[in-house]
């Protein structure tokens, strides 16, 4: 579904990474790790078309990224659920409408029962009418996950989803991701939390990709 072939990224001040080849197939579960600034967020952005690589090819659902028109990009993003590092909500709309936003922009009405079920699944039913700034870090992360999956996407990309939450909440978010993966969705989580990766290995056959020396490597069993 998402394929990167010999991709290099260069922001102008030198090369961030090069020769990255990656394929996200249905049902796969990947972790992406590496030091800060090694390109984890950049790689995720390539996977949903917010950035274009300096070299190499990115295929998103069969389309080459550079050949996609703006409306193609919009349609592709409806098939990719992204949990952003900073969550990015519309602060003037209540949580329920924020979670349903992907449906709204696609011109579809949210089914009230399904939305309530989704909010209950991430444990946010009581906060449905709260505004995003009133939520705690963990609540925002779970809301971001709910928004990422409301369109029933084929791929879920998460950038440091456990960045601002305690260990208990991290495990809860991880369990939610594992449940989604069991439903056949491809999952890619960028994180530098090795404990989270270890915790995941007991639940799911996850592969760990690590940025080292500007290259992406498949990490061995040393984790």
């Amino acid at each position: 579904m998402i394929e990167l072939q010999s991709v290099a990224m260069n922001y102008g001040g030198g090369e961030l990474f090069a020769d990255v080849t990656l394929k996200l197939a249905p049902g796969s579960f990947h972790f992406l790790t590496g030091p800060s600034g090694s390109g984890k967020t950049t790689l995720l952005k390539l996977c949903y078309g917010e950035l274009v690589p300096s070299a190499g090819q990115v295929h998103l659902f069969g389309q080459e990224l550079r050949q996609m028109r703006r409306d193609d990009t919009a349609r592709m993003r409806r098939r990719v659920g992204v949990v952003h590092q900073d969550c990015s909500f519309l602060d003037h709309l209540p949580l329920a409408e924020n979670v349903a936003l992907p449906l709204t922009v696609a011109g579809r009405a949210a089914d009230a029962a399904e939305l309530a079920e989704l909010l209950a699944w991430v444990g946010l039913a009581p906060q449905a009418q709260a505004l995003p700034p009133q939520l705690s870090g963990g609540e925002r992360q779970r809301a971001a996950l709910a928004r990422a999956i409301i369109m029933s996407p084929d791929v879920i990309l998460a950038d440091e989803p456990t960045g601002n939450v305690d260990w208990e909440m991290s495990l809860r978010l991880l369990t939610l991701m594992v449940e989604l993966n069991r439903m056949g969705k491809a999952v890619l989580i960028a994180t530098h939390d090795l404990n989270l990766i270890r915790a995941a290995k007991s639940q799911v056959a996850a592969r760990v990709l690590r940025f080292k020396g500007r290259r992406l490597q498949l990490a061995g069993a040393d984790l």
Binding site: E50, R75, R77, H84, L101, P102, V105, A106
Partner: peptide
């Protein structure tokens, strides 16, 4: 600007 970026990220077309 922030609102527009969020809308774009969740799949809004320019027309919308």
């Amino acid at each position: 600007g922030q609102v527009i970026r969020v809308l774009r990220l969740v799949g809004a077309r320019d027309q919308f």
